[in-house]
Write a protein that binds this DNA or RNA. Structure first.
Lengths: 148, 148
DNA sequence: CGAGTATCGAGAATCGATCTCGATCGAGGG
DNA sequence: CCCTCGATCGAGATCGATTCTCGATACTCG
């Protein structure tokens, strides 16, 4: 993760302020843990990364941060929810590779041409179905290197 | 769902037999409920569809059916797991559109050209990451017609 | 028919996620 | 600097989906 951490916190502060919320001593460590985590992290992973964190507060703060658009919720295939910093803050557009076996989630980027081709195809699909496609995210299932 | 139900049960029987399991009076209704469900269904939806079903048995049987490859587990964005009949049985290849808001899951198919283009792109990605991409499934996030 | 194994169903046990509630913290006003 | 009031905090209770336990049944095969 090669993002200017101060700039990132600034972004978080702005979003929170815009909703009348504060960037508190309870939320900063959560954001910090998300930065240090390599990719989408579960609550328990975050608590492990920073033992000071109270589980209930992490849940609450992640909910708030998600509400103001600072973090994004990622659902994988093990029944735990994962969170990651929003692309708007990290400036790092990406999609997810989910291991259908163990649930690990990895990030990847599509080449520009593949990305635009995909967007075109999906826009067509969105029109033919009752869904509005935003292509905010593309979750792909595969098998990670650690699984058989 | 326009599949020959008898042929479908035959497929289920074959898969179960191949693993030394039986297609019992407890599993048939589950498969039947999956057929009548329109798309991936949650356990409670299945139980609602057939009040005779015992919840614990549905869980167990779906696990068995998944084990032998007769059904597939689908993870959406509401915290419930959904199940659907495996493509190998329905002969109906498709991907999923997941409403990021309410969690509803819909099916869709990609046009052949888009599908192959996508496969190519993903194969490349699989090589550059530590994931083995199988493109068994493509889950897309969008917003369904019923959500704001 | 009898043995041995796969299943069944109801209820208990798990465990991640959410909610409750009294104690704190922080920005502004006085 | 003190006070007020809403935003937050943290620990523990609660919720709800999923899984496990276990005695009772249903089949298959000899």
């Amino acid at each position: 993760m090669s993002v200017d951490v101060d700039e990132l916190h600034d972004g978080v502060v702005r979003r929170l302020a815009g909703a009348g919320r504060r960037h508190t001593s309870g939320r900063r460590p959560v954001v910090a843990a998300l930065v240090s985590a390599d990719g989408p992290a579960t609550i328990s992973e975050l608590v492990d990364l920073d033992v000071q964190l109270a589980q209930s507060s992490v849940y609450r703060n992640l909910a708030v941060l998600e509400e103001v658009g600072a973090v994004t919720r990622v659902v994988a295939h093990d029944d735990r929810v994962r969170f990651e910093l929003a692309e708007a803050l990290t400036h790092h557009p990406h999609h997810h590779l989910i291991c259908g076996n163990c649930g690990v989630v990895g990030d990847f980027e599509l080449a520009a041409d593949a990305e635009s081709a995909l967007r075109g195809a999906l826009a067509r699909i969105g029109r033919s179905t009752r869904f509005r496609m935003d292509l905010r995210r593309l979750d792909l299932l595969g098998t990670c290197a650690a699984c058989p």
